[in-house]
């Protein structure tokens, strides 16, 4: 079983992830049809770059609202924590070295892992809970948003349960959910991972073109 999960299943999941992600991204990019022809006041490209890479904190006027603080803090806590754990947890670095890239890097220490995982968990939990109890998010959330949050949560949780690295079963469980997550990813709102620079870029280009110091 574990051989299957870590062998064929892993490569199958990875293939689905790559193929359908490319499909979805390609589809969006190839739709075309951007028809701005009016003379620009300033550089659209500069605006896009600004909006993608620089303006990443909520604008001051919105910080009067508690929910903006909440989403920003919990959102960054979750995402930064998740990426730190994903890329720098010792078992992940080993895995990347052995199965993906052939080289690795210095992982974070155990306590660093614990702290970042806790930050990520707190962030995800708070964001997911709000989905249920805030009338706004309750109204607009799709089943997909809950599945995406739930699967990510389970992947993180099984990863932490396997922390002792004593049980093949737990490692397999984690891997199995990672694979499920990878398969679900290209079809779900998890895909914002790849599309956010596009949407921020398009709006940034609009700001740039019109000379809006947004």
């Amino acid at each position: 079983m574990i051989a299957f999960i870590e062998g064929p299943a892993w490569y199958a999941a990875l293939t689905i992830f790559v193929v359908f992600s490319l499909w979805r991204l390609g589809w969006v990019l190839l739709m075309g049809g951007d028809k701005h022809k009016s003379p620009a006041r300033a550089s659209a490209a500069a605006g896009a770059i600004r909006n993608i890479f620089v303006d990443l904190a909520p604008r001051g006027a919105f910080l009067k609202r508690g929910k903006v603080w909440f989403v920003a803090l919990a959102g960054y806590a979750f995402h930064l924590g998740l990426f730190a754990v994903l890329l720098f947890a010792a078992p992940h670095v080993d895995f990347i070295e052995q199965k993906l890239l052939g080289f690795g890097w210095t992982p974070m220490p155990y306590w660093g892992f614990i702290v970042t995982a806790e930050i990520a968990f707190a962030g995800l939990l708070l964001l997911w809970i709000r989905r249920f109890v805030d009338p706004v998010t309750r109204l607009i959330s799709r089943l997909d948003d809950h599945l995406a949050a739930g699967l990510t949560f389970i992947v993180m949780l099984t990863g932490c349960l396997a922390l002792g690295q004593q049980s093949v079963f737990l490692r397999g469980l984690h891997m199995g959910f990672v694979e499920l997550w990878l398969v679900y990813f290209p079809f779900s709102s998890l895909f914002h991972t790849f599309t956010w620079p596009l949407s921020r870029g398009y709006s940034g280009a609009l700001f740039g073109r019109r000379g809006i110091r947004a």
Partner: peptide
């Protein structure tokens, strides 16, 4: 039990500080 115990132990230790908050 060994599987449950190691899973529970690590999960429990990790989530503990979140409870305090």
């Amino acid at each position: 039990l060994a599987v449950f115990a190691t899973a529970a132990l690590h999960g429990h230790n990790l989530f503990g500080p979140l409870f305090a908050l």
